[in-house]
Simulated assay, not measured.
Amino acid sequence: MEKPYWEGKHYSYFSNKECEYFPCHKGADPENFNCLFCYCPLYALGDKCGGNFKFTDKGFKDCTDCQLPHKRKNYGYVTGKYAELVELMKKMG
């Protein structure tokens, strides 16, 4: 099986171990924690992001328990959702 084009590329993984909050999610594996998507680009997709989130009583999306964008192996998943983000922006715009 051929590996994805991005696997092993430096642009697909960045770990900022000097960050005061590193790792910012409890239980995360610090050796495979990807900081590239520090602010998740999939947040705007609401319940279609694919991550482990919940909504607060006030209706805000709480991603505290989600590690989806921070796992090294999920770079392709996150960037694969960009087309959905483009469509969402077209509808808003």
Score class of each variant (00 low, 15 high):
1 M>C: 14
1 M>I: 14
1 M>A: 15
1 M>R: 14
2 E>I: 15
3 K>D: 15
3 K>S: 15
5 Y>R: 14
5 Y>T: 14
6 W>T: 10
6 W>M: 12
8 G>T: 07
9 K>Y: 11
9 K>S: 14
9 K>H: 13
10 H>R: 14
10 H>W: 14
10 H>A: 13
10 H>I: 13
11 Y>W: 15
12 S>A: 15
14 F>M: 14
14 F>Y: 15
15 S>T: 13
15 S>H: 10
16 N>L: 13
16 N>D: 15
17 K>R: 14
17 K>F: 10
20 E>H: 11
21 Y>T: 12
21 Y>F: 13
22 F>C: 07
22 F>P: 03
22 F>K: 07
24 C>A: 12
25 H>W: 03
26 K>G: 08
26 K>M: 10
26 K>E: 13
27 G>T: 06
27 G>K: 05
27 G>H: 04
28 A>Y: 04
29 D>N: 13
30 P>Q: 11
30 P>T: 10
30 P>D: 11
30 P>E: 13
31 E>H: 09
32 N>V: 02
33 F>Q: 03
34 N>V: 00
34 N>G: 04
36 L>E: 02
37 F>P: 00
37 F>V: 01
37 F>C: 03
38 C>E: 08
39 Y>E: 11
40 C>I: 03
43 Y>W: 12
44 A>G: 04
44 A>V: 09
44 A>Q: 09
44 A>W: 01
44 A>S: 09
47 D>A: 04
47 D>L: 00
48 K>M: 02
48 K>R: 08
49 C>T: 01
49 C>K: 01
50 G>H: 03
50 G>W: 02
50 G>E: 01
51 G>M: 05
52 N>E: 08
52 N>R: 08
52 N>F: 06
53 F>M: 05
54 K>F: 07
55 F>A: 00
56 T>M: 04
56 T>R: 05
56 T>E: 05
56 T>W: 00
56 T>L: 07
57 D>P: 03
57 D>Q: 05
57 D>F: 02
58 K>A: 01
58 K>P: 00
64 T>G: 00
64 T>W: 02
65 D>R: 05
65 D>Q: 08
66 C>M: 01
67 Q>S: 02
67 Q>Y: 01
68 L>D: 01
68 L>K: 06
68 L>V: 11
69 P>G: 02
70 H>K: 02
70 H>V: 03
70 H>L: 08
71 K>N: 07
71 K>R: 12
72 R>G: 01
74 N>F: 03
76 G>T: 06
77 Y>G: 02
78 V>F: 02
79 T>F: 07
80 G>C: 12
80 G>H: 09
81 K>R: 12
82 Y>F: 13
82 Y>N: 11
85 L>H: 04
85 L>F: 05
87 E>K: 10
88 L>H: 05
88 L>R: 07
89 M>H: 08
89 M>L: 12
90 K>Y: 11
90 K>N: 11
91 K>R: 12
91 K>M: 12
92 M>W: 09
93 G>A: 13
93 G>W: 08
